[in-house]
């Protein structure tokens, strides 16, 4: 479960995130939409404790992320926009390294099964990741989430730059994770994928959550109109 209450981040006069409050329950996917600089990544960085909030709180499973940074990190998995792994290590070795850093220890067979579960083809398991595509690397990231039994998944633009097939595979994986009661927060530009996968959609502008929508209640067309309205308003003001 991800919860933020009046979460705010300012840099001098500039407000990156303003009074942001939302909750993502287990089995829910919240997609944050917004232009570049709307505050989506800043929000995720605060949840990861990479940034201290200026005010307000952020919680993972009820634990404050600034006070219990390491504890909360053991509950979550983060997949950045461009997930990078150690190029000279194999997929298994990369997964092994990161799971061990999370305090878990699995044998090779287990690791392989996690990778398979994340959709990485068997012949890629023992290959060095230097030639992996972005989609393949993300699958290793998902495998990490599976291995860690993460309660929370934080995704920053995961589908940008993916070809439609990989993108589709990735969305399917998310749906599976959702079914496994993982709370997922995903920052994205992709309205189509957001509509497809999320349970809720938040539209941000200038650090403010402008609109919070239950995905089931809106069509893709309506979503696009709402989004553009908000963005245009921003341009005028």
């Amino acid at each position: 479960m991800i919860t933020t209450k009046n979460l705010t981040k300012t840099y001098g006069d500039f407000t990156a995130v303003s009074n942001l409050s939302f909750t993502v329950n287990e089995g829910e996917i919240l997609c944050l939409l917004g232009a570049n600089g709307a505050g989506k990544s800043t929000t995720i960085n605060m949840l990861l404790n990479f940034l201290d909030p200026t005010s307000g709180t952020a919680q993972i499973n009820g634990l404050d992320v600034t006070k219990n940074a390491l504890k909360t990190k053991s509950l979550l998995t983060y997949i950045p926009e461009n997930l990078m792994l150690y190029p000279t290590l194999t997929a298994i070795e990369n997964l092994d390294y990161f799971t061990k850093l999370s305090g878990k220890n699995f044998n090779t067979n287990n690791l392989k099964s996690f990778l398979s579960e994340a959709g990485l083809q068997n012949d890629a398991h023992s290959k060095r990741v230097q030639n992996f595509s972005k989609g393949m690397r993300q699958k290793v990231g998902i495998a990490l989430a599976i291995a860690k039994q993460a309660k929370v998944l934080l995704l920053d633009e995961p589908t940008s730059g993916l070809d439609p097939k990989s993108s589709n595979e990735f969305i399917n994986l998310l749906t599976q994770m959702k079914a496994n009661n993982v709370a997922i927060l995903m920052a994205t530009h992709d309205l189509f994928r957001a509509k497809e996968v999320s349970t809720h959609i938040g539209i941000m502008r200038s650090g403010v959550l402008q609109n919070y929508i239950e995905t089931a209640n809106i069509s893709l067309k309506e979503l696009e109109t709402t989004y553009l309205d908000i963005m245009n308003f921003q341009n005028i003001s």
Binding site: F50, L70, K73, N82
Partner: peptide, 14 residues
């Protein structure tokens, strides 16, 4: 620069 640092940062380690 490689990008692995963010992933490391998301792990429960100091």
């Amino acid at each position: 620069e490689l990008g692995t640092l963010k992933l490391l940062g998301a792990q429960p380690i100091a």
